[in-house]
Amino acid sequence: MKLALRKIRLVVHLLYGMWVVATRFARVTAQQRLELNRAWSLRFLQLAGMRLVVHNDGARIDEGALVVSNHISWIDIYVINAWRPTRFVSKAEVRKWPVVGWLAEQLGTVFLQREKRSDAKRIMHELSEHLVAGHVICVFPEGTTTDGRELLPFHANLFQAAVSASRPVQPVCIYYEDAHGNQSTAPSYIDEMSLGESLDTLLRGTPLTAHVYVCDALAPGAERRALAADAQVAIEGALDRLRPVGARVRQAAARGQAEQDAEVPHAGDTPAANGPLAQ
């Protein structure tokens, strides 16, 4: 199917989503809204040439949990909503995006003005209230998107909401796989890439599989830095499990070579006692 036609179908589906939210959400229960959101998100992934596979879903917490995930693309939101609809914390700029911004606002997204430090207290208070009320909130603690191959250090600030509300943290890992079983960077939305360029790259990279690995929840009680560190370890472990065996072997070999190179004396190093310069 031609790229232009696929993009038109996605736009039509976005407009349909606006119609559903505007005409049906006020007349249905909260649970039915979640079901409508999930069905719409699954269809969006299908139209984008992507299928969803969920791992370890038995660990999922459906009430009062702070979900934290690695962040690769704008489509991560639809992947997570296709798994388990949730509220998100997003940068304030998203609110201005056509169609998508309106939908995000209507679905309860909490918008963060990252350039204003004073906004952090408001966000923490609002997130804590949502968690105490039993809502599930999703944040991306890396603070930006990556190509998905490695994690950036997690910012601990947003974990304070779970600490203040005494609610668990649920790490989840997103991983995109191409038709050959290798990790795909086609969905990544990074650097100076525009939304349109990102969409074109994603559609050209299909068919894709979006994997969601649900990690075991972190119990409340720890302080925010400990929670951030434990969540990062959990997601790194899930990412390693989702990578193809061949990729893991290559990475292990590369790490071994790096360690071996680190042991080779450089100019100015003291030669080892059993080295070629030993007398």
Rank of each mutant, 00 (worst) to 15 (best):
M1C: 09
I8L: 15
I8V: 15
R9N: 13
Y16I: 10
M18S: 09
V21C: 10
A22T: 07
V28W: 02
R33A: 01
L34W: 05
R38D: 03
L42S: 05
G49K: 03
L52A: 04
G58L: 06
I61R: 15
N70C: 06
I75N: 03
I77Q: 06
I80D: 02
I80Y: 03
A82V: 03
P85N: 09
R87D: 06
V89I: 11
K96L: 02
V99C: 05
G101T: 02
G101N: 03
E105D: 13
L107Q: 12
T109E: 00
V110R: 00
K116L: 03
R117Q: 01
S118I: 00
D119L: 01
D119T: 01
R122I: 02
H125N: 13
H125E: 11
V139H: 02
E142H: 07
T144E: 08
T144G: 09
H155C: 01
A156H: 07
N157T: 10
A161S: 15
A165Y: 12
R167H: 12
R167F: 10
P168W: 12
P171M: 13
V172L: 13
S184C: 06
S184T: 09
E192A: 14
S194E: 03
S194T: 15
T201W: 01
H211Q: 10
C215F: 07
D216Y: 05
P220S: 07
G221C: 11
R224Q: 14
R225E: 14
R225N: 12
I235H: 05
D240A: 15
R241K: 14
L242Y: 12
A247H: 11
A247C: 04
A254R: 14
R255A: 11
G256E: 13
Q260T: 08
D261W: 08
A262C: 02
P265F: 08
H266A: 13
A267Q: 07
D269I: 03
T270L: 12
Q279N: 10
